[in-house]
Amino acid sequence: MSSAAAETLSVVVEREIAFPPEKIWRALTQPHLIEAWLMKNDFQPLLGHSFNLSADWGVLDCQVLAIEPNRTLSYTWNGLGLESVVTWTLTPTSTGTQLRMEQVGFRPDQQMAYRGAIAGWPRFFSSLEQVVARAD
């Protein structure tokens, strides 16, 4: 492991959600559902697909790095000087799904982005849970 990688910070949010992985997967991969909990996008669940996430504060350039339906999804999350990777992991449990999100790649000088992610992801998770609960 290079020293540069060792110096970066990551944000992890984990939560058990009382729905099966298939249902959460739809919220992670269907553009209209992603927009409902995260932001506007032109996502497609295809390996190598480049897409944007856009909010009033700016646009993120993203690319699908790994995709295994109902299990794992990973994409770059680049913008505003940040070059990071977001990885979702879905693990079935007896009562639903253990959903884990890890965002890696915050440099030590990117405290604002890092703190923003620490504050933002739990809110995104709450919105995601509401979208999953509503989705058919």
Rank of each mutant, 00 (worst) to 15 (best):
A133G: 11
Q111N: 05
N78R: 11
V104H: 11
A36R: 12
R26P: 01
M101W: 01
Y75C: 07
R115P: 08
A66M: 06
N41C: 13
S74V: 00
M101G: 03
Q111F: 06
L60D: 13
Y75Q: 06
I34M: 07
A66T: 08
A113V: 00
L28I: 07
S84C: 04
G120A: 01
I17H: 00
W121G: 08
I118K: 13
P31F: 01
S2F: 13
A55Q: 14
E14A: 09
V11P: 10
G48E: 08
S50L: 03
T87V: 00
K40W: 12
I24G: 09
V59M: 15
C62I: 10
Q98I: 08
I118E: 14
L38Y: 15
L90R: 03
T8L: 09
P20C: 04
Q44H: 14
Q44G: 13
P31M: 02
M39V: 08
Q130C: 03
I24K: 00
A113P: 02
W88D: 03
F43A: 10
L73H: 07
L53D: 01
K23V: 08
S74Y: 00
D42L: 14
Q110A: 05
P20R: 12
L33T: 00
T97D: 06
R26A: 12
P45M: 12
W37T: 03
R123G: 11
R107C: 10
I24T: 05
M112V: 15
W37G: 05
L60N: 12
A119N: 14
C62R: 11
G116C: 07
Q110Y: 03
Q63L: 05
K40A: 15
G81F: 08
M39G: 12
S127T: 10
Q98H: 15
V132I: 12
W37P: 03
L38N: 09
S2M: 13
V59H: 11
S94A: 15
A117L: 05
R100E: 08
Q63V: 06
R71D: 02
T8R: 12
S74Q: 07
N41E: 10
W25M: 08
G81K: 09
P21N: 06
P108I: 05
G79Q: 09
A133N: 14
G58F: 09
L53S: 08
V13A: 02
W88T: 00
H32M: 06
L99Y: 05
V132R: 06
W57R: 04
S54V: 12
H49E: 09
E129A: 10
Q30F: 04
T91S: 12
F106H: 06
T8I: 07
E35G: 06
D56N: 14
P92R: 02
P20E: 15
F124A: 11
T76W: 07
A133F: 04
F43W: 06
S3L: 15
M112H: 15
F51K: 11
F19W: 10
R123K: 12
A135W: 00
E16F: 03
